[in-house]
Design a protein around this nucleic acid. Sequence first.
DNA 1: TGCACACGTTGACTTGGATCAAAGGGGCTC
DNA 2: GAGCCCCTTTGATCCAAGTCAACGTGTGCA
Lengths: 248, 248
Amino acid sequence: MPNRKVVQPITLSVIKTACSNCNLQEICLPLGLTHEEVEKLDEMVSARRRLKRGEHLYRAGEAFSAIYAVRSGFFKTDVLLEDGREQVTGFQMTGELLGLDGISTEIHSCNSVALEDSEVCTIPFSHLEGLSREIQTLQHHFHKVMSREIVRDHGVMMLLGTMRAEERLAAFLLNLSQRFTARGYSPAEFYLRMTREEIGSYLGLKLETVSRAFSRFQEEGLIAVQQKHVRILNTPGLKRLMNHHTRE
Amino acid sequence: MPNRKVVQPITLSVIKTACSNCNLQEICLPLGLTHEEVEKLDEMVSARRRLKRGEHLYRAGEAFSAIYAVRSGFFKTDVLLEDGREQVTGFQMTGELLGLDGISTEIHSCNSVALEDSEVCTIPFSHLEGLSREIQTLQHHFHKVMSREIVRDHGVMMLLGTMRAEERLAAFLLNLSQRFTARGYSPAEFYLRMTREEIGSYLGLKLETVSRAFSRFQEEGLIAVQQKHVRILNTPGLKRLMNHHTRE
DNA sequence: TGCACACGTTGACTTGGATCAAAGGGGCTC
DNA sequence: GAGCCCCTTTGATCCAAGTCAACGTGTGCA
């Protein structure tokens, strides 16, 4: 599946989104709100937007005005250096928020790209702040989401700063597994939506190194991989690999 | 100066802090607030706390209840892996906030250590959320601060994921310089408050590599270093080193 | 249906930074 | 103000991951 060129202009669906009918309430912004409060959220979440695989949700440098909740699909965010080097800063799945990077300067500081055909809910940020001033639970939950992002980033820094290639990949697979589980999917079997190069960029490795690590895991019976299809065969083994520094 | 053992119990000063008298208003939480609003902040910022060099402000695993603004001094935050590996996740100076990591789970996820004798203002988080619901400017500024932390973390991920040792050190020195400048200090001359090992941990390098990179910069006339004293002699040179990948 | 072409795997070789080791310098502490 | 300990520097060697290259493979479009 090659990256398609954008086939049609960005389609801003006018279909009203309704958090109150959404099956992602338990992992998305409405978490912990009463029924009445969720209905207030409904008014705020202005529209859904569909994106084709390869399409940008936003780009670094664009004005920030809203955050987005992934309704379906899969995204990556990345930052670019002038000389062309790319760092993938995260992969986002259903129920996760995108665009938090734009709040600080009101200009997006990274790119957000759909890795498969996807749909997001647009949440105008000024509305979110307004409603947060009314609904304490929403305010607190939003703060938790931002803080969770900071904690996640620290985890990635730990990974990039101290772990060896195979530890990094093990951590990555376990993290995906755990997030799929939270969404009701199999913890042990899933399709990767990103290329080896994107995984490598996220993990601070070259694609060849990622590929070799996959092969090694397979040889050792930890996983079964075929292209983008991954089956985890030995979760404890992967965990052990992640935490026990072989040297010293 | 060896790390002193804690000589005396934690001293919770009862001296009332007053944002309205503080010369850090322009870079700290009160940014953009009216005089009346800053006085409301005064009531909230409950107390200052003094820390000796080497003392922990909080530790991973402890209950979270407040965030802290650095009033004077210098801090590092770090995360530890079970096997003892450490990653320094940041260095905080005057006017910067500490403790944002604790919001998500209400348990701190990292350690915060004073790298010199320091003083912080304690801001009970529930009070901050309360006042944020009243004062829109404060709410928005707080969101910006959290978002800025996320953007900063992405920058570190880029550094750890794609840069070579000397690029990392150059980026680090330029970042310090810029932050000292924002605080009215010399952009070109400063004392490092952290060891080579701590710099290395932050940059994903070993202390020997950091030391060698310092020596190399000195040979090339980019900086003058003696122990913890650094003078930047050629800022554009450092910037060039940071952005222009030598290979390909 | 078949043919590109992007993606993935594997092998051979190189290299930047880690590791190991040893010696010098500064500033607390006694 | 002497001594010690930690921090830093520098050198020699090693190795994990990067680089370069060539060959499979699957899938989306003509």
